[in-house]
Design a protein around this nucleic acid. Structure first.
Lengths: 163, 163
DNA sequence: CAAAATTAGATTGTGCGCAATATAATTTTG
DNA sequence: CAAAATTATATTGCGCACAATCTAATTTTG
């Protein structure tokens, strides 16, 4: 067993490594699409998309957040959130209002309709869990590994950009 | 330890389960974005997007495929692929030509430029592996788990649609 | 073989997702 | 306190992603 010699262990790339079905990035990309396709019929019943749904989830955890705070939690910028939030407002789930204290900020608050969606979310969550076919422990383990992976990828991106 | 009683094990949902950071779907969604952000600077150098890149990867494995075959491999439909393939053709990476034997089909073939990108892909792959901070074994294990997850999600979606 | 059904792609419309830019409000500095 | 820098959000443009629809080609059926 050769011990890890710094980068040596990541540098021996066999030709077969370019095969699509061996790449983690593609497995993640496909799983994201698979989740989206699973959520779609469940969310269509409420006229929501998955990104809109996770915005509501964020607000259920803490209402009255700014657009910036939502963006940091979800990893999305204003170019994505601004129109999305307008659609959520048009659908009656949220209200958008400039902060009186700092008019640069827009505070997002749930309407009664937006709060009520939380009840439906329990049912949706059950449907998704069943579709994954995973035990709760299995779900938690995989979730944790992906969170670590994302953190490392973002850290690497930050390093390269900063350098 | 209570044995699994059919659905019982998936039905006890504590309120905290709606927390965003406990959801596998969001971990997958975030990891997909993180990968995309990591790939972007590497692919920008060649004027490619990640979806365009995986189309090329598919063609490196087997050239001369139809749009439908590409769509089945990648999980994408013609609404996504048609314009994407036109951009890849405009950039000189592929050629599109109707099949003489069956004029409904369009055969996609790599140009020399498209084949040459395969050399650059090795370097990109190294950069990505380093950014993940994972060992090869770790990458393979996670990839396998996600492939199983996607398969179960797609199977569940197919069941529900068919029923 | 002609009508009906199926199949492959392309097109249109809507909604992300993000870079680049613009605008307005606030904070920092000289 | 006024000019400069920073901050928060909005807008624009481009590229996925997918449902719905359309056209043309092929296959199936009567």
């Amino acid at each position: 067993m050769t011990d890890k010699r710094d980068e040596a262990e990541t540098n021996d790339i066999p030709p077969s490594a370019l095969a699509l079905d061996q790449q983690l990035c593609f497995a993640v990309y496909s799983a994201a699409h698979a989740f989206n396709r699973t959520y779609k019929p469940l969310l269509d019943a409420y006229g929501l998309t998955y990104p809109q749904y996770i915005v509501l989830m964020t607000l259920w955890e803490e209402d009255g957040r700014t657009v910036k705070a939502l963006g940091e939690t979800l990893g999305l910028d204003s170019g994505t959130l601004s129109p999305l939030l307008k659609r959520l407002e048009a659908a009656g789930h949220i209200r958008r209002a400039r902060d009186k204290a700092d008019e640069r900020q827009v505070l997002i608050t749930l309407t009664d309709k937006g709060k009520a969606m939380q009840d439906a979310a329990i049912g949706i969550l059950k449907g998704i869990r069943q579709a994954t076919g995973c035990t709760v422990e299995n779900l938690q383990a995989l979730t944790g590994e992906l969170q670590q992976l994302s953190a490392r990828l973002e850290a690497a991106a930050r390093h390269d950009t900063a350098a």
